Each structure stands twice: as structure tokens, then as C-alpha cells.
Computed example of a mutant assay.
Amino acid sequence: MRYALPLAAIAAIIAVPVIAQQSGPPGAPDKARVTAGTYAADPGHTMVVWEVDHFGFSKYTGLFGDVTGTLVIDPANPAASKVEVTIPVAKVTTASAGLTGHLLRAGKDGGKPDFFGAAPADAKFVSTRVVLDDDGDEAKVTGNLTLNGVTKPVTLDVDFHGAGTNPYNKKATVGFNAEATIKRSDFGIAFGIPAVSDAVDLEIHAAFEKQ
């Protein structure tokens, strides 16, 4: 019996020797590699990591993946860049099945959920301003974050990570890392404060592919 390999698997097999011959990774922190255009977030390699302090004993980390969205960028005018992403809150992941279930649990007896609830709306971030540093590889990106039905301004500290061509799909790709801290109570999520910190540290890793 013959089995047909998925196209993605075939592409990966073909690309492996090509990658093996390279002296380094396909991407590099070289701004000259960035080309103007509209890019789409690579949902398989874009994620939002969140961290809270638990009881003052340890840090606890979770993850939002499958992020989608667009980035419009022009190296000749990077301050005019725009980014809009959607984060599927319903796909939140933690190291504990019990905690993940609690985050997505309906409110008791029809009451308000402790966290996001059973059918949370996607979160969205839409940029409103980009301010670059003198070197042009770091920026403060301010925008509106909508989470749990509440919209608040948030500023991300963004670092340019790298750019190049993805060897699998041949798409021009740019990547960034970003950090921010928000207060979950600002978004109507106050369960467990102060035993579990109000402050939530966000660490974002994003890859965008040119369309």
C-alpha cells in the first residue's frame, strides 16, 4: 500500500539539505534585509507568553499561540509602520490542565467567570504610534489592546530580531521580540489579587511573512 506524503512534509524534506549547507540561520539581525510591504503573522511561530507571580513563591507562565494579523512596514519610513494582531484567548495553554480549565471555566451558577470564561472573545492589539531609537533596531510601539471586552492603551518595547527568506516557503520574513507589563484588573480580571499578582508580564515573539 502506498502512502501520500503531505506537501508540507515533502517541502520540509527537500529543504533540509539546503538548510544544512548554510553557515548560519536563514534570518539575521540585518535591517538591510527588510523590504517594504505587507506581512502576515506566521501563526505557528508567533506567540504571547504571559507571567504572573503566584503567592510570592514562584512565577507562573502561560501561552497564547496561533496569533494572526498583519504588519505594514517601509524601511524608508519605519515610524509609519502599522501592526494589527488577533490573539485567540480560547486557545490559552498552561502547564496545568486544571489551571487551563479554570481560566476557561464558566462562572458558577451563571455568575461572572473568575478569568476568561467558556467562550472568550479574541484579544486584539492595534498600533497607533511607533517611536524608534537612534539605531532603528528598537522601538516603542503604542496601541490599543482589547482583552476581555475592555480596551486600554499599551506600549510594547520592541526589538528587531532578524530578517531573511524562509527556506521552506521562500517568503521574505521579519521577526521581532517585545515586552510589556499590564494590570489584569484594568481588563476586568481581578480574581485572586493580591495572592496572584495583578501585574502580568508579557513576552511576545513574532514572525511575519511577506504577502
Rank of each mutant, 00 (worst) to 15 (best):
D134Y: 02
K91Q: 14
H161D: 15
D159A: 15
G98Q: 09
G44A: 11
E203G: 09
I204A: 10
A195W: 12
R33I: 00
F115R: 03
I189T: 12
D42E: 14
N169C: 06
V130H: 11
N77L: 07
A106Y: 07
R184S: 02
D134V: 05
T181W: 02
A178Y: 08
F187M: 08
T68F: 04
A119N: 15
S81V: 09
S96V: 01
V16M: 12
K82Y: 03
G111A: 10
A199H: 12
T142L: 07
T165Q: 06
A139K: 10
L132D: 02
G65F: 09
A8N: 06
F187I: 06
D157W: 01
G101P: 09
V85R: 04
E203Y: 11
T100K: 15
G192V: 09
N166S: 11
S81M: 15
I87E: 03
A20E: 04
G111Y: 07
A28H: 04
L147H: 08
V67P: 10
V131S: 13
K31P: 13
G107L: 05
T70I: 04
T35R: 12
F57N: 05
R105G: 06
Y60V: 14
N177T: 05
E203L: 14
N169T: 02
N77H: 12
S58G: 00
G37M: 12
D157Q: 11
G111R: 07
I19V: 15
E179A: 14
H161S: 12
I189F: 10
V154F: 03
S96I: 02
N177W: 12
P120F: 11
P88H: 08
A118C: 04
L103Y: 14
V141K: 05
E209R: 00
A207G: 12
A163T: 01
P43H: 08
F187H: 07
D133C: 06
I10M: 08
P29K: 12
K31Y: 07
V18A: 14
V85N: 07
D159T: 11
F160Q: 10
D134N: 11
E209V: 01
Q21K: 09
A123Y: 11
A40Y: 00
K124L: 08
D42F: 01
I193E: 14
A119S: 15
V154R: 11
G56D: 12
A90F: 02
D137Q: 14
I182H: 05
L99W: 04
F57A: 13
K108R: 10
I10A: 05
D122Q: 08
W50H: 10
G175P: 04
G27H: 01
A195S: 08
A95V: 12
A80W: 11
H161N: 14
V200W: 12
T94R: 05
P75M: 09
Y3F: 15
A12V: 04
F208K: 06
A11H: 03
Q21I: 01
A15V: 07
P75K: 09
V85W: 04
K124R: 15
D198Y: 11
H102G: 02
R105L: 13
